[in-house]
Design a protein around this nucleic acid. Structure first.
Lengths: 146, 146
DNA sequence: ACGCTACTTTACGTTAACGTAAACGTCAAC
DNA sequence: GTTGACGTTTACGTTAACGTAAAGTAGCGT
């Protein structure tokens, strides 16, 4: 069968990270690649798992938070309470992510508004700026000015 | 006029941060509160600016990135090239934010799917889990298993 | 056998974003 | 007039997420 595996350098290159980073993730218990001799060999599953970790990092989670999320997928000993705890944590994570998305949307809205203002601005004599259409001064409305 | 001002402790309490954090933001040039004697006194504008900074932090930006974004709102000496540079940087920021939102959406989708599976699971004899409706084993499809 | 390359472990260094402690100023209250 | 509550500066400590250097191993080509 096509048991495709990756060296540490392969994956590092593919994801644009260093081998040190992958070893660090292993130290923190985020991945556990197999070994051939003393060398690490990453499976396809490891590869996807690493992509998951990196996306978590881009989203802003810490490594230990990511470890927690990964552990959610381990169902445990089959007790009902275990399932409920996992479910609750999972929902917490989703709520946090949605709050963060709201923050992002706000920031995008403000920056976009500022971009629109900028696009409509031309330099005027005396080191000033005026609006292209009306010739009026900018009225910039920085988010913190009112 | 009601020139409402805030002490450092007021703002810290309101935003759920420490006074040290506010002083740190000042050291990094992110805010510049007025002084009454040797004491800091934050204006309403300072307050909004700090809210902006904290939202940036929640989104995952570093303090220096936030400083850059804040500087975007200073139009500079009125040269056209300056405006274009600012506009470009502003658009870069927006693009980065949109990419990040895409990552968040992906993560939410996966976690939600996992939640749905969990909700439909009940414990079965032998420390196993089965689906409530069909009685089938979970087929969990962890993101990294396929 | 020799060197090259990729890999390993061990361990100390670095940066960001504050925490925390020390030592001091100031003003109102008792 | 001294005790607090609140503020200040200075400066060293801490944690996370790696960077980086040192020293050794293992296979492969010539």
């Amino acid at each position: 069968m096509g048991e495709l595996a990756y060296s540490i350098k392969d994956l590092a290159a593919e994801f644009g990270i260093t081998a040190r980073t992958l070893r660090h993730y292993e130290e923190q218990g985020l991945v556990a690649p197999a070994r051939v001799g003393q060398n690490r060999t990453y499976s396809a599953a490891d590869r996807v798992r690493i992509a998951w970790i990196l996306r978590g990092r881009r989203v802003g989670f810490s490594l230990s938070e990511i470890a927690d999320m990964l552990r959610l997928y381990e169902l445990g000993d089959g007790r009902e309470t275990q399932r409920q705890v996992t479910l609750a944590k999972c929902r917490e994570r989703i709520a946090a992510l949605e709050a963060q998305r709201a923050d992002i949307d706000e920031t995008i809205t403000e920056l976009t508004g500022f971009c629109d203002t900028l696009e409509n601005l031309v330099p005027a004599p005396g080191g000033r700026w005026v609006r292209k259409d009306t010739g009026e001064p900018p009225q910039l409305r920085n988010p913190w000015d009112g």
